[in-house]
Amino acid sequence: MDVFMKGLSKAKEGVVAAAEKTKQGVAEAAGKTKEGVLYVGSKTKEGVVHGVATVAEKTKEQVTNVGGAVVTGVTAVAQKTVEGAGSIAAATGFVKKDQLGKNEEGAPQEGILEDMPVDPDNEAYEMPSEEGYQDYEPEA
């Protein structure tokens, strides 16, 4: 019985440690998101679009440190934060509304985080759909 109880105690310690790591990862992701939003706020009209992409990228980098179902929630929060940063930029006159959601080359930025393969159960990952990809044929 002692062996059984000791095993359960060790398992509990492992769960607590994993929860603490997840909590730490979420806190880091939130900190990076805040950094990115402050970065966007300090940019001029020309830099705002690039700044919004930076927020998304920093958040995406930190999301990889967070495991399990938390990833889905962090990704949703990050996307809403990026959308909010863009709205703030438009409201303050840093950028025109028609410039939001495009990178410096004018290509749409939507789907940055949505296409990231995420499995809350950590069982399997699927690649994003290939609808947006084109076949590449090298020139002879």
Rank of each mutant, 00 (worst) to 15 (best):
M1G: 00
M1P: 00
M1Y: 00
D2Y: 06
D2P: 01
D2F: 15
V3R: 15
V3W: 02
V3P: 00
V3M: 06
F4M: 03
M5K: 12
M5A: 03
K6I: 11
K6V: 02
K6Q: 02
G7V: 13
L8P: 00
L8K: 00
S9P: 00
S9G: 13
S9A: 04
S9Q: 10
K10L: 14
K10H: 03
K10Q: 05
K10P: 00
A11R: 00
A11V: 15
A11H: 00
K12G: 03
K12H: 08
E13M: 14
E13Y: 14
E13R: 07
E13H: 02
G14W: 05
G14Y: 11
G14F: 15
G14T: 15
V15K: 00
V15H: 01
V15N: 00
V16Y: 13
V16H: 06
V16E: 07
V16L: 11
A17F: 14
A17C: 06
A17P: 00
A17T: 11
A19Y: 15
A19Q: 01
A19V: 10
A19K: 03
A19D: 00
A19S: 02
E20N: 09
E20A: 14
E20H: 13
E20R: 02
E20K: 03
K21Q: 05
K21R: 13
K21G: 00
T22L: 08
T22F: 07
T22V: 11
K23I: 02
K23A: 07
K23S: 04
K23N: 01
K23D: 00
Q24Y: 12
Q24S: 09
G25K: 15
G25P: 01
V26E: 00
V26Q: 00
A27W: 11
A27G: 05
E28M: 07
E28V: 10
E28L: 08
A29R: 02
A29S: 03
A29Y: 14
A29K: 03
A30S: 05
A30W: 05
A30Q: 01
G31S: 15
G31Q: 15
K32C: 02
K32A: 12
K32L: 13
K32I: 10
T33H: 01
T33G: 04
K34W: 15
K34F: 14
K34H: 04
K34V: 15
E35W: 11
E35C: 14
E35K: 08
G36R: 13
G36H: 15
G36E: 03
V37H: 00
V37N: 00
V37F: 10
L38Q: 07
L38R: 09
L38N: 04
L38D: 01
L38G: 02
L38W: 05
Y39H: 06
Y39K: 06
Y39Q: 03
Y39G: 03
V40A: 05
V40Y: 12
V40L: 14
V40M: 12
V40Q: 00
V40I: 10
G41C: 10
G41L: 02
G41N: 03
G41D: 00
S42V: 07
S42G: 06
S42W: 14
S42P: 01
K43M: 15
K43G: 01
K43S: 02
K43Q: 05
T44I: 15
T44S: 10
T44E: 00
K45Y: 04
K45D: 00
K45W: 15
E46S: 07
E46K: 07
G47D: 08
V48D: 00
V48I: 12
V49Y: 14
H50C: 08
H50A: 13
H50K: 10
H50M: 14
G51R: 11
G51W: 15
G51K: 07
G51H: 09
G51Y: 08
G51L: 11
G51N: 06
V52N: 01
A53I: 14
A53N: 08
T54E: 02
T54M: 15
T54H: 12
V55C: 08
V55A: 06
A56E: 01
E57Q: 05
E57L: 10
E57Y: 06
K58I: 15
T59A: 11
T59H: 01
K60E: 01
K60N: 02
E61Y: 02
Q62H: 07
Q62N: 09
V63F: 07
V63M: 14
T64L: 10
T64S: 09
T64Y: 11
N65I: 14
V66W: 14
V66S: 01
V66H: 03
V66M: 12
V66Q: 01
V66Y: 12
G67Y: 04
G68S: 03
G68Q: 05
G68C: 03
A69F: 11
A69S: 04
V70D: 01
V71F: 06
V71K: 09
V71N: 02
T72Y: 03
T72V: 04
T72W: 06
T72R: 11
G73Q: 13
G73W: 12
V74L: 15
T75E: 03
T75V: 15
T75N: 07
A76W: 13
A76P: 02
A76L: 13
A76Q: 07
V77A: 07
V77G: 04
V77P: 02
V77I: 14
V77W: 15
V77L: 12
A78Q: 03
A78N: 01
Q79S: 07
Q79Y: 11
Q79K: 13
Q79C: 12
Q79F: 05
Q79D: 03
Q79H: 07
K80V: 12
K80S: 09
K80Y: 08
K80T: 04
K80D: 02
T81I: 06
T81S: 08
T81A: 12
T81E: 02
T81H: 03
T81K: 02
V82C: 08
V82L: 12
V82W: 15
V82R: 04
V82K: 07
E83F: 13
E83W: 15
G84C: 12
G84H: 05
G84T: 13
G84F: 13
G84Q: 11
G84N: 10
G84S: 11
G84E: 07
A85P: 03
G86Q: 14
G86L: 13
G86P: 06
S87F: 04
S87H: 13
S87W: 14
S87M: 12
I88T: 03
I88R: 04
I88M: 09
I88N: 02
A89T: 07
A89K: 02
A91V: 09
A91Y: 14
A91K: 04
T92N: 08
T92Q: 02
T92S: 11
G93V: 07
G93E: 05
G93W: 08
G93M: 03
G93R: 05
G93P: 04
F94Y: 15
F94V: 03
V95M: 03
V95Y: 08
V95N: 09
K96F: 13
K96T: 11
K96G: 10
K96Q: 05
K97L: 08
K97I: 14
K97R: 10
D98H: 13
D98K: 07
D98M: 06
D98R: 11
D98N: 10
Q99N: 08
L100V: 12
L100Q: 10
L100I: 05
G101Q: 07
N103A: 06
E104W: 05
E104R: 14
E104F: 12
E105D: 09
G106D: 03
G106Q: 06
G106N: 05
A107E: 03
A107P: 07
P108K: 10
P108C: 12
P108R: 11
Q109H: 08
Q109M: 04
E110Y: 10
E110F: 12
E110V: 10
E110D: 10
I112W: 06
I112C: 06
I112L: 07
L113P: 10
L113S: 11
L113Y: 12
L113I: 09
L113V: 15
L113A: 12
E114T: 08
E114K: 09
E114R: 11
D115W: 06
D115V: 08
M116Y: 12
M116G: 03
P117F: 10
P117T: 08
P117W: 10
V118M: 09
V118C: 12
V118W: 05
D119E: 11
D119V: 05
P120L: 08
D121T: 11
D121W: 05
D121Y: 13
D121A: 10
D121R: 03
N122V: 08
N122D: 10
N122P: 04
E123I: 08
E123W: 09
E123K: 11
E123D: 10
A124I: 02
A124D: 14
A124G: 09
A124F: 11
Y125A: 04
Y125K: 08
Y125R: 04
E126H: 12
E126P: 09
M127S: 04
M127C: 10
M127T: 04
M127V: 10
M127K: 13
P128L: 09
P128Q: 06
P128I: 12
P128D: 11
S129N: 04
S129I: 07
E130Y: 09
E130I: 06
E130R: 04
E131Q: 07
E131S: 08
E131H: 09
E131I: 12
E131F: 14
G132T: 13
G132H: 05
Y133N: 09
Y133K: 03
Y133R: 02
Q134S: 10
Q134N: 10
Q134K: 13
Q134H: 04
Q134L: 12
Q134E: 05
Q134W: 13
D135K: 05
D135Q: 10
D135Y: 09
D135N: 13
Y136A: 06
Y136H: 10
Y136I: 10
Y136Q: 08
E137L: 08
P138T: 08
P138V: 08
E139Q: 04
A140W: 14
